[in-house]
């Protein structure tokens, strides 16, 4: 049962988005988010939606996966839409139902906000989480932030912690399964009773899990020391990251997209935020 949990949201593939340098992907994601927030009018939002759709196609991730990713946000999206629709004032009244007044501006604002949130989520997951393995992401982050280690920020240590956490998640899941089975064999019941009761039933699982994690941590620390680990100083890396033509091509595309949005904001008439 616990084995079905997928780690992160990574979907292996060979698309151009998969093959980009992770450092570049992090930079691109930030730029992409900036571009979304630059959008001011409906035409610009339409443009960024198209752009996002194009990225989805490029990534080769199925539409179903993307929709699944949006699903948990439905409540927030609905709330945003309704809130803006009913409470955003303006001067072009569309509908009046008793005390409820819906303005043209409110309707536009609601659409814009929903599009913004959806693009933000879909775009950044297609660029980063769906197409980058967690280990690449950690690696990219470490190298991108490595200048900060000059300011005595423990960048290497954080990335090491991330790597170890990722390494041990499957191990701990396996162990949880084992402990749960052991407790079940002794007659414990995790699936019935009130919420409080079920939460209490988890204690005999968590405590052994905690203790064994500490033991594992101790063992691992000694093993790492035996393999000459002494932090990030003087450490080299086997895999080297290289920025290639496609990385710069993608950067150019995003910058172009940003420029297009600015132009649309300025020259295409219509409702503006």
């Amino acid at each position: 049962m616990l084995k079905d949990i997928t780690l992160g949201q990574f979907f292996p593939g060979k698309s151009i988005l998969h093959r980009l340098d992770p450092r570049m992907k992090i930079v691109l994601s930030i730029l992409y988010i900036v571009v979304i927030f630059l959008c001011k009018n409906l035409a610009a939002f339409a443009f960024i939606t198209l752009f996002t759709a194009a990225m989805v196609v490029l990534s080769g991730i199925s539409l179903r996966t993307i929709l699944k990713g949006i699903k948990p946000l439905i409540f927030i999206l609905a709330f945003t839409a309704i809130y803006n629709l009913f409470f955003y004032g303006g001067d072009r009244l569309l509908v009046k139902l008793g005390f409820i007044e819906i303005y043209y501006e409110g309707a536009m604002y609601a659409v814009a906000m929903v599009v913004r949130i959806v693009c933000l989520l879909v775009g950044s997951s297609v660029l980063l989480t769906y197409t980058t393995s967690p280990i690449m992401l950690t690696d990219g982050l470490e190298r991108l932030l490595s200048p900060l280690s000059k300011l005595k920020l423990p960048v290497h240590e954080f990335s090491m912690m991330m790597t170890i956490a990722l390494r041990f998640i499957p191990t701990l899941i396996e162990e949880t399964d084992k402990i749960m089975n052991a407790q079940k064999a002794r007659g414990s019941d995790f699936s019935s009773g009130s919420l409080v009761r079920r939460a209490k039933a988890l204690i005999p699982i968590l405590i052994p899990l905690f203790i064994s994690s500490f033991r594992r941590a101790g063992d691992l620390a000694v093993a790492m020391e035996c393999r000459c680990y002494r932090g990030g100083n003087g450490r080299t890396k086997m895999t080297q990251l290289h920025l290639s033509f496609r990385d710069f091509a993608m950067l150019f595309v995003i910058l172009l997209c940003g420029a297009a949005v600015l132009l649309i904001n300025r020259f295409v008439p219509g409702f503006s935020l």
């Binding site: 967690p134 790597t163 000459c228 450490r235 080299t236 890396k237 086997m238």
Partner: peptide, 28 residues
């Protein structure tokens, strides 16, 4: 060591094998 799970550091086999030499500062 005894427990095979508690001495592997990286999430990919070859990265784990590289862990020691990386600590020694050997060229990539």
């Amino acid at each position: 060591f005894q427990n095979p799970d508690n001495q592997l550091v990286a999430t990919v086999v070859e990265e784990d094998v590289a862990f020691g030499p990386e600590n020694l500062g050997i060229p990539p």
